[in-house]
């Protein structure tokens, strides 16, 4: 998987489809949202990808704790970093979108606060990790913390924003996928273009970082 090429081409093909069909395809006509509904392919996809990377990351952290293989630790940290990056993009793009639909970049909406808290918890993961110099200790403590950070995603992103009243779509249910907001035309582009495209692109970048990390380790052990 790390050095195969077909899925990289697939990623770009999906993204091309999402970019072209995303702008030229038909969308439901909605007040306030207008053409910004097309942000679904970009803003919402960022959060989906973040979640995918965090899940992959926590799986590798658990794997590390079970077998103490430092390779799994590298996978975990690099996927978490990509997840944090996509989450930041999601937060920034969401805030721009909010400015023109809700009226302000930041309105302390439960969705925004929850996402911000979740990201801060993951920032702490990076800080904690870099503050430990011993390799094994670093890997072990950060793997345990990663599981905690992942668990905190549930209240901050999945539960609280759904039970509190929110400006975000789906305040009382599924965000982004209210059947009345999105129609079949958009769903096809989202599931077959945007999600696989972005998810694979992020994976591609992550595998590059992982390979670079492996090279660094090899260099260290060779010296």
């Amino acid at each position: 998987m790390l050095r195969k090429n077909w899925w990289k081409i697939l990623s770009v093909a999906c993204l091309l489809y999402a970019f072209i069909a995303g702008f030229l395809g038909g969308v439901p006509v909605k007040p306030i949202l207008n053409e910004t509904i097309r942000n679904l392919y970009f803003h919402v996809a960022m959060w989906f990808c973040m979640m995918i990377y965090f899940i992959v990351s926590v799986v590798y952290s658990i794997k590390y704790l079970r077998n103490n293989n430092l390779k799994d630790d590298i996978y975990a940290i690099e996927y978490a970093k990509t997840g944090i990056f996509f989450g930041m993009l999601g937060l920034i793009t969401g805030s721009v979108w909010a400015k023109y639909t809700w009226g302000a970049f930041w309105s302390n909406d439960p969705k925004q606060l929850g996402a911000a808290i979740a990201l801060l918890i993951y920032f702490a993961y990076l800080v904690l990790r870099n503050s430990i110099t011993d390799f094994d200790k670093q890997a072990r403590i950060s793997a345990v913390y990663n599981i905690f950070a992942f668990a905190m995603l549930f209240p901050t992103i999945w539960i609280i924003p759904r039970i509190m009243e929110s400006l975000h779509p789906g305040g009382m249910g599924n965000p982004a996928f209210n059947t009345k907001d999105i129609d079949a035309r958009m769903r096809v582009i989202f599931w077959f273009g945007a999600i696989p495209g972005w998810a694979l692109l992020g994976t591609w970048i992550t595998t590059l970082r992982i390979r670079l990390k492996f090279l660094e380790e090899k260099k260290l052990s060779n010296v």
């Binding site: 990289k8 770009v12 993204l15 091309l16 970019f19 072209i20 702008f23 030229l24 692109l201 591609w204 970048i205 590059l208």
Partner: peptide, 17 residues
């Protein structure tokens, strides 16, 4: 807009590749 986005995407792809 679509053309600009496709150019950016192909540029980024080239860079990552």
């Amino acid at each position: 807009v679509v053309t600009v986005l496709v150019i950016i995407l192909s540029g980024l792809t080239f860079y990552v590749a």
